[in-house]
Nucleic acid binder design. Sequence first.
DNA 1: ACATTAATTGTGT
DNA 2: ACACAATTAATGT
Length: 214
Amino acid sequence: MNQEELIQDTFRGIFEAELINEIAAAARLVPFKEGDVLIEIGRYIKTMPLLITGAIKIMREDFDEGELLLYFIEKGDTCAMTLACCAGDKKSEIRAIAENSGLVAMVPVNRMEEWMGKYKSWRAFVFESYNNRFNELLSAIDHLAFMHMDQRLLNYLREAAKVNGTHVINKTHQEIAYELNSSRVVISRLLKALENEGKIKLNRSNIELSGSPT
DNA sequence: ACATTAATTGTGT
DNA sequence: ACACAATTAATGT
């Protein structure tokens, strides 16, 4: 598929045709692979990413050492942080890391401002995107504040499975612990407990979710 | 094919 | 949290 078809495929039904053409004309497609850092904390943001394929995880860095996963973004989403940063010319407060390989369309911010005035569907998209992120943030906070680690872990596994479109998660206990800002031993024990409950199956370097898709 | 090392996971204190 | 054992994968000889 060429660039235009990809963009049309992703945003058909969200934007009017005219806007999609403008996006296709202005966007620069950037492929990424798992582990790539797309946005680093403290960096200024000059282009806005629209996700075409793949998934990206949004991480927050903790006070001293350690990270915390806030949420994933998927196809058709954008990073709400970018929107805020662009408007205020501020540094990024978050880090974006590719969860798996995929493709983003990078759009210059000045175009985005122009579209804000020009297209209703774009405004709606931006607002809805904000709303989604806000809700995900709220639920992330709920998890942190009210859930125990075993529930957070299960929740994390399901999210990870969802964005990867599979029930097999190729992560080590270490990596998972890092993203949940916990220690490896705790994760190992909880994973084993989950395995005993029959909710997951443990192999080396990958974890199988049992149960319903999505 | 074998030994060595590193990485990953399991367990006890 | 720490230490260490056990298992598996990776690499060199």
